[in-house]
Computed example of a mutant assay.
Amino acid sequence: MSDIVRELRVDGRSLRVAVRAGEGTPLVLCNGIGASLDLLQPFVDRLDPDIPVVRFDVPGIGESELPRLPYNFATLAWQLGRVLDELGCREVDMLGISWGGGLAQQFAFQNPRRCRRLVLVATATGMLMVPASPRVLSKMITPRRYRDPAYAATIAATLYGGRLRDEPLLAKEILYRHAPLARGRGYALQLIAGAGWSSLPFLPLIRQPTLILAGDDDPIIPLVNARIMHLLMPRSTLHVYPDGHLGLVTRADDLAPRIADFLQR
Rank of each mutant, 00 (worst) to 15 (best):
E7G: 06
L15N: 11
A18Q: 03
R20N: 04
A21F: 00
A21L: 04
G22F: 10
G22T: 10
G24E: 08
T25L: 14
T25G: 10
C30Q: 05
C30D: 10
G34L: 00
L37N: 10
D38C: 07
Q41V: 12
F43M: 08
D45K: 04
D48R: 13
V53G: 00
F56I: 02
V58T: 00
G60Q: 07
L66T: 12
P67F: 00
L69R: 14
P70R: 03
N72W: 01
A74I: 03
A74G: 05
T75W: 00
T75M: 00
L76D: 11
W78A: 13
L84T: 11
D85Q: 10
E86C: 12
L87P: 07
G88I: 07
G88Y: 09
C89D: 09
R90K: 13
V92F: 15
M94F: 08
L95G: 08
G96R: 06
I97F: 01
G101I: 05
G102Q: 09
L103H: 02
Q106P: 08
F107S: 02
F109Y: 15
F109M: 14
Q110N: 00
N111V: 03
P112W: 06
P112Y: 05
R113D: 10
R116Q: 14
T123M: 02
T123G: 03
T125C: 13
G126W: 04
G126V: 06
M127N: 08
L128S: 08
L128R: 13
M129Y: 00
V130M: 05
V130P: 01
A132G: 06
A132P: 01
P134A: 06
P134S: 10
L137R: 14
L137S: 14
K139N: 11
I141T: 15
T142M: 10
R144I: 08
R145E: 09
A150C: 07
A152P: 08
A153S: 14
A153I: 06
T154D: 15
T154C: 09
I155P: 15
R163Q: 13
L164F: 08
L164N: 03
L164P: 07
R165G: 09
P168I: 03
K172S: 15
I174T: 04
A182N: 01
R183Y: 06
R183D: 13
R185S: 03
L189N: 05
Q190P: 08
Q190L: 03
G194I: 02
A195D: 13
G196K: 04
S198G: 07
L200I: 14
F202K: 05
L203F: 11
R207L: 15
P209G: 10
I212W: 04
A214G: 12
D216A: 02
D217P: 13
D217H: 09
D218F: 03
I220C: 02
I221S: 01
P222C: 02
P222R: 03
L223G: 06
L223Y: 00
A226L: 08
I228E: 05
M229C: 04
M229K: 09
L232W: 05
S236A: 15
V240H: 08
D243N: 10
D243Y: 01
G244P: 12
L246Q: 02
L246P: 00
G247R: 04
G247P: 12
L248N: 04
A252I: 11
A252M: 04
D253N: 11
D254W: 07
R258N: 06
Q264M: 15
